[in-house]
Design a protein around this nucleic acid. Structure first.
Lengths: 196, 196
DNA sequence: GTATGATTTGGGCGACGGCCCAAGTCGTAC
DNA sequence: GTACGACTTGGGCCGTCGCCCAAATCATAC
């Protein structure tokens, strides 16, 4: 089989990916600063020394793993949004997504950990800011294309911030009614209430 | 003077307070997990052993310091809000406050650090959630009293979440125009645009 | 077979972490 | 004076950390 005849380089890339995956699952569990060399190695099923063979430092590993995750997440969110023709449908779909990211789920926690770590890691900060700026401009383009009446970039920024804020608040109060927030959000974007 | 004739107990409480203050300044600088026994002792100007005399653990110190800070902050915010009679004035004032909490300032960072730490510290989580719930209900009462047309609790939750989200996003993109966000927020709360 | 090069192993080094504790300071009570 | 109690000191114990490295592994090249 192909897997048994893999070259060294191929096996190496696979190991590197396993380390990235392990980091993504560990940060939400133990926190950015709680991820240690031995912990990721154990989670990835490799010896501790492998970590510093593939990455210059634990921090380097966390930055690479985090950025790969957020990049994929934001891209897929923007893709899905672009697929909805109307602002109302898009907002509804976003709120549906929000009920999946409840604030205490691994994805939400990872993102917030990255926000915080970025305040002390200039390189992470710049690259994460770039990803978010790109996302915001894609949302603004979608709003404008869907006929939003007003300043699309500002509305996109407010919308993205509001959604992240809801995720944050839900992490403390899981009982927050996400569906009910559709009302104020729709009003903010100038869409009439849904008939149903 | 009173300060020179302080009893042991009084000096002890003063020392304890200095440790709490030191913790509040250190968490934003080095992160929740980066605050060490020796670091906080040095910042407070005391010997390392004092920390574990006044607090059972470093985590205990951080929890006490953080909750004291957020409690005071939320109380004063709610007090100020209650002093504004109209929703429009209140929102404007909140956005003015927001320009003080830029996302990279110590207060914002401390709050986000607490959000994250609370996911792994049930006691902190419960008490922080209680503080925020109290704040939300005070905001809802203010909205209702100011004549808000709609579900005040939901609007208050959405407003609080949106503001926190803006703080979060500003930490990555300091160029975000807070003033411009007044438009969407006023629309969300059903207030006409300001004439000026 | 031997040589090569990338990858992996597991232990080790020095530094630093939380928490403890015997000894010391200092104002008050007697 | 002595005894007491609250507070403070600074060093020490023991565990874990990040990072390193000599040796082992293994598919491929010759």
């Amino acid at each position: 089989m192909a897997s048994t005849s893999a070259t060294s380089a191929e096996r190496g890339r696979a190991t590197r990916q396993r380390l990235l995956d392990a980091a993504v699952t560990l940060v939400p569990e133990v926190g950015w600063g709680g991820v240690t060399t031995r912990l990721v190695a154990e989670r990835a099923g490799v010896a501790p020394g492998v970590v510093h063979y593939h990455f210059a430092s634990v921090t380097d590993l966390l930055v690479a793993a985090g950025l790969a995750f957020t990049g994929g997440l934001l891209d897929s969110l923007a893709d899905e949004l672009r697929a909805r023709p109307g602002i109302g449908e898009g907002v509804d779909w976003l709120l549906g997504e929000l009920s999946r990211y409840g604030g205490t789920d691994p994805a939400s926690l990872l993102v917030v950990e990255m926000f915080l770590a970025s305040t002390r890691l200039p390189e992470l900060r710049e690259r994460l800011a770039g990803q978010i700026a790109a996302f915001r401009s894609r949302v603004a383009a979608w709003l404008a294309e869907a006929g939003y009446q007003g300043d699309a970039p500002t509305a996109a920024a407010m919308l993205a911030a509001a959604l992240d804020g809801v995720v944050l608040h839900r992490s403390l109060d899981p009982g927050l009614d996400v569906a009910a927030m559709a009302g104020p959000l729709r009003t903010m974007l100038g869409i009439p209430e849904e008939p149903s």
